[in-house]
Amino acid sequence: MAHVIDPSGEVTIILHNANAPFAIWSAPISSGPARKADDTNKGVRIRVSAKHLILASPVFERALTGPWRESITLDQEGSTEITAEGWDIEALLIFLRVIHCQFQLVPLDLSLEVLAKVTVIADYYGCRAALGFFSCVWVQDSIIPKTYSRDLMLWVWVTWFFTLPDQFRGATSIAMSQCSGEIYSLGLPIPRAVIERMNAVRQSSIQSLHGLLEGQGAKILHGERGCHFECRAMLFGVLSMHMHDNKLDWPAILGQSYETSARATETVRRPRWREPCSEGSSNTNNRRLHNCPDCNFTRLLGPVEQSVQGLRLQNFLV
């Protein structure tokens, strides 16, 4: 299979293992599985311009002007070959047309999947600036995921690549709020510091939520909440049962998302029972509904944030 970007181009890119699996996700993929790798033994050949490659990419510049076989062959024979591995064919052709200034052939609408693949290629070849203009064209509301998924991690990468602070903050907020385990980069070139920070913030947020519940339980246990022994016993029992039933105790709480835990924290049932109107009274008809203010867990626990605040992109930029 052959493609021609520049008919008079001096360089042939030979793409092996085309359409290799990309950003592998262990859960079902909302946007459909990645295409299988191309099994063409000779690879996909793409004719391009050496000058455009050199001007756009420091990686290509080193290959074509340094003391390497590709550069020597280009000088001696006027043409050369460069190999590439695993790239998606559609994404690679879009990338090459951008750096060859063939904007009339560049699609204006890209799926998030293709956009992520194009930007990964551009990042690998050091061509972030060349794609900067297209962030205004390709980044559209229709491709923004609303839930934690493979697509969301693609979106985290795209917002990082194009330096979109508001969108990056929103994407990382969703990931840290909705992920029920460790957050992975899926092999995308998201900086390790970003992934490590996301996991640290997610865990610390869940720890804070658990600490709130444990702290109020300790206050009930030590008599700082509740108006008498029976009241404290009822409150402590209800809170303990709710934490157990909703996996809010430790370490079970780490196995579910912050968002799930936060919602469960706001649904602790208010215990209701009747007690004698006067001390020592045994008349079952002379009872009133217990109305201690501490029986209202919404008041006792206070407002609970329903999501984790996203990361600030500026904190990771050198």
Rank of each mutant, 00 (worst) to 15 (best):
I94L: 03
G126L: 08
A116N: 09
C101A: 15
Y124R: 13
S111G: 11
G132M: 05
L105Y: 08
F133A: 13
L93I: 13
L93H: 06
L108C: 04
R97L: 10
S111Y: 03
I121A: 07
L96R: 14
V118C: 12
C127I: 06
V120P: 02
A116M: 05
A122D: 01
F103K: 00
P107Q: 09
I94F: 01
I94P: 00
F95D: 02
H100C: 12
S135G: 15
D109Y: 12
F133C: 07
D109A: 06
A129N: 14
L115R: 11
Y125H: 13
V120K: 10
Q104H: 09
E113I: 11
A130L: 11
D109F: 13
V114L: 12
G132P: 14
Y124G: 03
I99L: 12
Q104P: 00
F134L: 14
L108A: 08
S135M: 13
S135D: 07
T119W: 15
H100S: 11
V120M: 10
Q102N: 09
Y124Q: 13
L131D: 03
F133N: 10
D123M: 04
A129F: 14
L110I: 05
C101T: 10
F133E: 12
I99N: 13
V114N: 06
L112K: 08
L105C: 04
V106F: 06
G132R: 10
G126E: 12
L105K: 06
G126M: 09
P107M: 05
A91P: 05
L108D: 12
Q104F: 13
L96P: 04
K117V: 07
